[in-house]
Design a protein around this nucleic acid. Sequence first.
DNA 1: CTAAAACCTCAAGTTAGGTTGAGGTAAAGT
DNA 2: ACTTTACCTCAACCTAACTTGAGGTTTTAG
Lengths: 150, 150
Amino acid sequence: MVKSKELTVGKVADRSGVKVSTLHFYEEKGLIHSWRNQGNQRRYHPHVLRRISVIKAAQKMGISLASIKEAFESLPDGRTPNADDWAKLSRTWHKELTERIAYMERLRDSLTGCIGCGCLSMKNCPIYNEDDKLKSNGPGAVLLEGLNKC
Amino acid sequence: MVKSKELTVGKVADRSGVKVSTLHFYEEKGLIHSWRNQGNQRRYHPHVLRRISVIKAAQKMGISLASIKEAFESLPDGRTPNADDWAKLSRTWHKELTERIAYMERLRDSLTGCIGCGCLSMKNCPIYNEDDKLKSNGPGAVLLEGLNKC
DNA sequence: CTAAAACCTCAAGTTAGGTTGAGGTAAAGT
DNA sequence: ACTTTACCTCAACCTAACTTGAGGTTTTAG
């Protein structure tokens, strides 16, 4: 028996476009919530659909599930997030995206001079000497000294 | 005995800033090449440094190792790639980056209207209805019908 | 009432891009 | 000569974000 105003996992999957297994996964990660019926099956509030939409949108922007979770946790606890709450998240991510775009543009604009020149002089190259705040995973900038005699 | 004009794996690691294990990994993936000395140790042509630089640059642009490998394979076979060859790659990636940036901008610019509005009407939203050529991994756009009565 | 469809849990597998460690060999420094 | 450093292979491990499958229960449709 499924009451109106509550959704089964299959319904949520159909309407959100994510697989049931993904919903389980998101729940395990604390990104969405559900309760159980008598038979131990998940039931969802329709609001979960918006959450999933936001997750998908954020992912398209390159935001990790961990960060999305954090963002969700910054929402007012207890009550269901309202328009203003989502708008606030939106502004945060907008800013982040703008930074990321700027980073990509710097990268792009130095690409020709850097890879394209045929010498790869690294001294002043943003690609190698970027102060990587957005994507700091490597061991930092290293000058390839054997190559920078252009 | 290390001849001049050839590099050991350790030297390459030091000068490129990637770990020895990463060099092994790249070699296994066919991204770089080496030969062996009498004692079965890897020896590299100094040109490998440029290849590694290009790999790192391309990675920063969000290009996967698989695509980088493909790009490398598009280079003239046999001879060592010259300035023009690298420039050609550079142009390809420049174009790709420009597309990616445009995609991010569309995403960013629809963010406020889409998440922020508090209704998430999906009908005309690029975030949900994007013709995902750049990042098509999900099951495509799905309208969240329960939510689009704004 | 029965059979199919949907759901459950838990473990293991997947891809990308590496990293770590064990056990053993080669090269270099003194 | 001997000891340390560098290198070798191979297997296993790591994170992210899921997917797949086995074995079993619940719901729903006819």
